[in-house]
């Protein structure tokens, strides 16, 4: 029971991450009807930008050794990363996607793959140092360089439970609380933007029918740009939270990033792509399936390598779930099946 509760904590934290990334996928798909494969790279950029910023801020503060960094850094870095990624998202949309507004969707998809490759490989260039530690060793560079780096911890950690006391039922780290709370704030904010404001109405109109929306006087290009920027900012937030939860960051072209982005994309599809609430639902559902699969199969060991079978197959549960959902309900759980007119 305690074990299951502990898993639920992880599901909520990781599910929030998936949901935040999935929102970007789903918003862009809803409006432009193409899969933005560069979205997961914006997420990676968010993680790395937050790493560089936190390292810079912490080294500028010159904290006494052993003292934990002040709490205000986390929100500051979060907002800064969101701004940086929002700008990058804007640039990507204007430079790469806008010239292709009338082109077939497949071309836009190839362009998205191109942008993704570009971001990955620019991020991997050996950069110049922006922060050094006490021994004069470089600890942060821009671009981020080919080696993995470690994100400093910005939030206090729960001390290991005292063995003399009764064992706590579940252990909730401040990181998990921070992730969940900020994800909920962002999602509610997005919900408000899309369903309660005039601009949100314009977004929904463009998603429904671009030409008609343009005829009604909606500035389609502006709506598309804002959608991209919003999606990129949410991805940056997810990147920051990911870096907090899993501090060892891989190089930008590492495949773990792409897989993570793919899973978030699966979440968007499972929830019903183009549907904002569906993306959130899908994010939590995918995390649930992934962690429950790992839990259920964790008793089985790989017969030869003696590694945990449950963890080895974690991607399989997600993609099997995807195929199952698409075969049973092709438009996703909350998606609406569009009737095709001849």
């Amino acid at each position: 029971m305690a074990e299951l509760l502990q898993i639920m904590v992880a599901v909520v934290a990781v599910g929030s991450l998936y949901a935040l990334i999935a929102l970007g996928y789903t918003m862009v798909y809803g409006i432009l009807k193409f899969i933005n494969f560069a979205h997961s790279d914006v997420f990676v950029l968010g993680a790395w930008v937050s790493l560089v910023l936190s390292v810079m801020i912490i080294s500028a503060l010159k904290l006494a050794p052993g003292s934990s960094p002040p709490l205000w850094i986390a929100p500051l870095v979060l907002i800064a990363a969101m701004v940086v990624c929002g700008l990058v998202g804007f640039a990507i949309e204007r430079l790469a996607y806008k010239p292709l507004r009338k082109a077939p969707r497949l071309n836009v998809l190839i362009t998205a793959i191109g942008v993704s490759l570009l971001l990955q490989n620019v991020g991997q260039l050996t950069g110049f140092a922006v922060a050094k530690d006490d021994d004069g060793k470089t600890i942060a560079t821009v671009p981020f360089g080919p080696s993995p780096k470690r994100m400093p911890s910005l939030l206090p950690e729960t001390a290991a439970p005292d063995p003399n006391l009764a064992k706590p039922l579940v252990l909730i780290q401040p990181v998990d609380v921070f992730i969940f709370v900020s994800a909920i704030v962002l999602m509610v904010g997005l919900q408000y933007l899309v369903f309660r404001t005039k601009f949100g109405a314009a977004m929904r109109a463009v998603s429904f029918n671009t030409e008609t929306a343009a005829l009604m006087g909606i500035r389609v290009d502006r709506v598309i740009s804002v959608t991209f920027v919003t999606g990129a900012m949410l991805a940056a937030a997810a990147g920051f939270m990911y870096a907090l939860k899993y501090p060892g960051l891989n190089q930008t072209a590492h495949e773990t990033w792409v897989l993570l982005g793919l899973k978030a994309f699966v979440a968007a599809v499972v929830g019903g792509i183009g549907n904002v609430r569906g993306a959130v639902l899908g994010g939590f559902l995918i995390a649930f399936i992934e962690f429950m699969g790992m839990y259920c199969f964790s008793k089985y060991l790989d017969p030869v390598l003696h590694t945990n079978m449950g963890t080895n197959l974690r991607d399989v549960y997600v993609f099997a779930m995807l195929i199952f959902v698409l075969l049973v309900r092709p438009a996703g759980i909350l998606g609406s099946q569009l009737k095709e007119k001849v």
Binding site: Y29, K33, F34, I35, L259, L262, F265, V266, V269, I273, N312, L313, D315, V316, F319, A320, L322, I323, L326, L327, P330
Partner: peptide, 23 residues
């Protein structure tokens, strides 16, 4: 089964198939 799906959805299922094969 998957060719009942169209366009992007077919793409996503085939993507899932490729990833499952890899794992």
């Amino acid at each position: 089964p998957s060719l009942r799906l169209r366009g992007d959805y077919l793409a996503i299922v085939t993507l899932g198939f490729g990833e499952i094969t890899r794992v």
